[in-house]
Simulated assay, not measured.
Amino acid sequence: MFEYITGITLGSIVAYVSMELTIKWYLGVVALAVWSLVSLGIELLQVKSKKMRDFFDSKGRVLIKEGKILEENMKKERLTTDELMEQLRKKMAFRVADVEFAIMEPSGDINVLLTRENQPITAKHLGIKVAPEQEPQAVIMDGEIMDEPLATMGLSRQWLNTELEKLGVAIENVFLGQVDTYGQLDVDLYDDQIKVPVPQEKAALFAILKKCEADLMLFGLTTRDKKAKESYEQCAIRMDKIISELMPVLCR
């Protein structure tokens, strides 16, 4: 709020000095300098002191707790029920009972925490390890190869040309090409009518690994040799572990 007021004040001073020809221009410069220094000083105080931040920006106010609307806090924020419901819908919360916690920030935004049973399921909830993601690199722009992003990914022009050949696409037809963490090349063509085939290498590898696991289990069930049976079962367990570790990479 303070930054908003300061911006309006500085803008008003500039407008007044530039339009009013009867005043001395240097007085406007002095006024601008004073306001700028005051604003800078207050911002520095806010950085160093929480009390100053609370004084100038106020605190966040809880509007919903454990699915119950706190009417008194809504009155203090001059917020109507319709406005609250509108903000909740923006956060994909259509029922107040589904909200564990909602707070209005000093900026005026309302942040919502859904109850645990209504939160989206993530890989962590399922106990699945997910490989870390890195920023995708744009290796082609406007039909031109970007050498620096390629080098950042540890790739070469030869690799890029090979991938384009697999897709059956000429580099001149590529508007944008990106490479993700796993070395997957995605292209957007100038001609949107052309369909780019989806790479199947990862899906094929996943299918092969699953087939190997199934074959090992089958061999273990059909053999009469105890040692061979134990060996097949152990190999099947190891294969299942390998597949589980590769799942975040292969099934994406």
Rank of each mutant, 00 (worst) to 15 (best):
R238A: 03
L70F: 09
K68A: 05
I110V: 14
L164S: 09
V179M: 03
T22I: 04
R61N: 13
K166F: 02
A102P: 04
L160Q: 01
I242G: 00
I110K: 05
Y26R: 03
A236S: 12
E71K: 07
R78I: 04
Y16D: 06
K195S: 11
T81K: 11
K195V: 14
A151P: 00
R53E: 12
F56N: 02
N111P: 00
E20P: 00
R252E: 14
M141A: 08
C251R: 12
V38I: 14
R53P: 02
S12G: 11
L250K: 01
E201M: 04
G108N: 09
L126S: 01
Q119A: 07
V29S: 11
T181V: 10
I69D: 02
I64K: 01
L88H: 03
V130R: 10
Q234S: 06
S58L: 09
T222I: 12
K229Y: 00
E233C: 00
V30D: 06
T81I: 15
K90L: 14
S49Y: 07
E133A: 13
D186E: 12
P120H: 00
M247A: 15
G67N: 10
I237K: 12
E172N: 07
E77I: 14
L218N: 08
N111V: 05
L218K: 08
G220V: 05
R53M: 05
G154R: 01
I42C: 10
V174W: 02
V169E: 08
T181G: 02
R61I: 15
K48R: 12
V30L: 13
C235W: 07
E172K: 07
D188Q: 12
W35G: 00
V96Y: 09
F55Y: 14
T6N: 08
R53G: 01
I8K: 04
I145Y: 09
R238I: 09
V196C: 15
K210R: 11
I64P: 01
C235I: 04
M217N: 12
E144V: 08
Y182R: 13
Y16F: 10
L246A: 13
K226Q: 08
A31Y: 07
I171R: 06
